[in-house]
Design a binder for these strands. Sequence first.
DNA 1: CTCGATGCAAAATTTTTGCAGTCCC
DNA 2: GGGACTGCAAAAATTTTGCATCGAG
Lengths: 162, 162
Amino acid sequence: MDAETKSNKDMQDTFKDFLSSKGLRVTNQRLAIFDAAYDHTDHFTAEDLLERSREIDDSVSRATVYRALPILTESGLIREVDVGRDYKFYMANRNATTFQAQVICQDCDKIFEIDAPFMEWYGKTVADKLALNVESQRLQVTARCEALNARGNCKRSGKHTS
Amino acid sequence: MDAETKSNKDMQDTFKDFLSSKGLRVTNQRLAIFDAAYDHTDHFTAEDLLERSREIDDSVSRATVYRALPILTESGLIREVDVGRDYKFYMANRNATTFQAQVICQDCDKIFEIDAPFMEWYGKTVADKLALNVESQRLQVTARCEALNARGNCKRSGKHTS
DNA sequence: CTCGATGCAAAATTTTTGCAGTCCC
DNA sequence: GGGACTGCAAAAATTTTGCATCGAG
C-alpha cells in the first residue's frame, strides 16, 4: 500500500467533506483540480494547475481553477506561497504541522520549504507588541548558490519556475 | 534646520551619484520620481508614485515611473515591500539599518514596519544549512486588531491602501 | 551631436466577471 | 427542478514594450 496514494485519497475525502459542510457542491471539475494539486509534489502556479487538471478532466476551464483556488486555500488543503513574483505559487498542504519558511534560490529558481517552528512564537511576540492577533506569517529568504554552481557541485540545477 | 529635509536632500544627491556612477542620466523626471518617493512617509504603490510625481513634474509618465522603480530599488534608496496583494508596495529607505519586518493588519489595512534585528542571524543560519548565500529576507505577519476595534480603542483606524 | 531617456498607446500577463447553459443535490 | 457551478470570452488591473521624439552630457 502506497502511503502517498492513500494519503491523497484521504485528503480528497477531506476536501469533499469540506465542500459539503460549506454547502458547496462536489463537482467533477473541483475534484479534478484537487487531484491535480495533489499530483504536484512541488510548488505550482494557477496555470500549472489548469494544465494538469485538464489532463484529468479536459472540461476544466481557467475560470473554474481560479474560482477553486480560494476554496482550496480556505480549506487549508492548499497553501498559497507568495514569493514576490508577478504570479502566485500554490502548494499541497500535506502536513500542516510546523511553520514553513521559504528559501528561494535566485540561481536555481527553486523554492525550498524548511521548518521554522520558532516563528510561531516570534510572530506572536511581535504582534503582541502592537496589540494585534496573529493571523498568518510568512518568512522568505532569498539566496544564491552561485558559489556551488561555480564549483560545479550545486545539486539543485533543475529550474523550477514551471 | 529641518533634519528630515536635509536628509531628503542628501538622499537625492546620493541618488544622483548613483545614476552617474552607473552611466545613467540625471533627468528631471527621475528626480521628480525620487522626490515623490521621499515625500511619502509611508508605503506607496506605483500608481501613488506616479500621481505624486506628476504634482512635481507633470511630464512624468507611467512608463517612466515603472522604469525608474527598479533603478531606485537597486540603488537601495527605495525598498520593495510585497505584502501579497495584487500590486506591490514601495517605501523610502531612509535608515537602511536593521532588518524590518512587516505586520499587516487586515482590519486597518495598515502596514507596520518593525525592527527584527535577529532575523539577520536567523536567515543566515537557515541558508547555511542549505549551503546558500543569503541575498535578502522578508518576514511578514498578518494580524487583526478586531478586538481593539470592537472596544473602540484601536488607534489605527485610518485606512492605508492608498 | 549622440545615444540614452521619455511619452504615448498598444500589448502582455494574470486574475476576475457576466451570462447563458449545465448538472449536482 | 432549482439554484449552484461551469465554460467562454470579454473585461480588469497592473506592468511592459515598441517607436518616434527629446534632451543630457
